[in-house]
Design a protein around this nucleic acid. Structure first.
Lengths: 138, 138
DNA sequence: CTATATTTGCAACATTATTGCATAAATGAA
DNA sequence: TTCATTTATGCAATAATGTTGCAAATATAG
């Protein structure tokens, strides 16, 4: 069962350790929504806080996860799907934060929106943070 | 000169104190861009950090300022203009973060964008965080 | 199996945020 | 203006969050 997560670490050229496998399991298990550090800590069980910080950094550097802007002013992390839109040159991603359950759903690409910036500005990244009530809470 | 800021406090039904006037001056002086707490602390001079926390909360509760989502994962605050779009029922606001100078510009309303959410979701707030290089840095 | 490089976990420390409380200040009423 | 009441401020103590250095443990290559 951990063969899948092993593969992910190999692809990211990261050494395979128990802690990294455990952390990856957490992300894979909620790949549809983004997690706060608190939520991660609750799910991963006993652990060293410092190691978690560093492992999150390694994962982010290896592009296994990415930070999510959902309008909640909390830092959240999400697992990168294979062809992760966050890591294309022109990153365009929409997230939806439910006011009730505080879940952040990934809504995928928004590249079809017509976004323009003032002249002489150049645009690298478009993050769309939507807030409301999700279908589960409605 | 502080008559203007006095008026703002009166409108917000807040008591007029030296510290609040000083903080308001800071916001009014950069009403075109959003400030991090660090930036505020640098501009306001000697102060008590706890008082700053509490005053920011009062200002936010009184809708004198609002928090800004600019994609930087840093909490920023901006002064509310009189007819502040952040405080309409359907809040729609775009901000632009410059990668070079880290300034966050307010780009105003985005209500003309066609945003749709999955069926059975309801939408309260739309925050568009744009990142790139501003004209000053280009 | 061994040598090397990386990761982990602990300690110490730095930064950021919160709560309680006594003092100081602002406001409304006499 | 002065006084009584309410609110804000600043300090102390504490909690929560994030960082750095280092020795021991672990993973990997040969």
């Amino acid at each position: 069962m951990s063969e899948h997560t092993r593969q992910i670490l190999v692809r990211g050229r990261l050494r395979i350790t128990d802690f990294r496998l455990r952390l990856l399991e957490v992300f894979v298990a909620s790949s549809h929504s983004a997690l706060t550090q608190k939520e991660i800590e609750a799910r991963i069980g006993a652990h060293d806080r410092i190691t978690l910080y560093r492992t999150l950094k390694s994962f982010e550097a290896a592009q296994l996860i990415h930070q999510v802007v959902d309008g909640s002013l909390e830092n959240k992390y999400a697992f990168c799907l294979h062809d992760c839109p966050e890591h294309r040159a022109q990153e365009e991603h929409a997230h939806f934060l439910c006011n009730q359950c505080k879940t952040t759903y990934c809504l995928g690409s928004i590249s079809d929106l017509a976004i323009t910036v003032p002249s002489n500005y150049s645009l690298d990244k478009v993050q769309l943070a939507l807030t409301g009530t999700c279908s589960a809470c409605n």
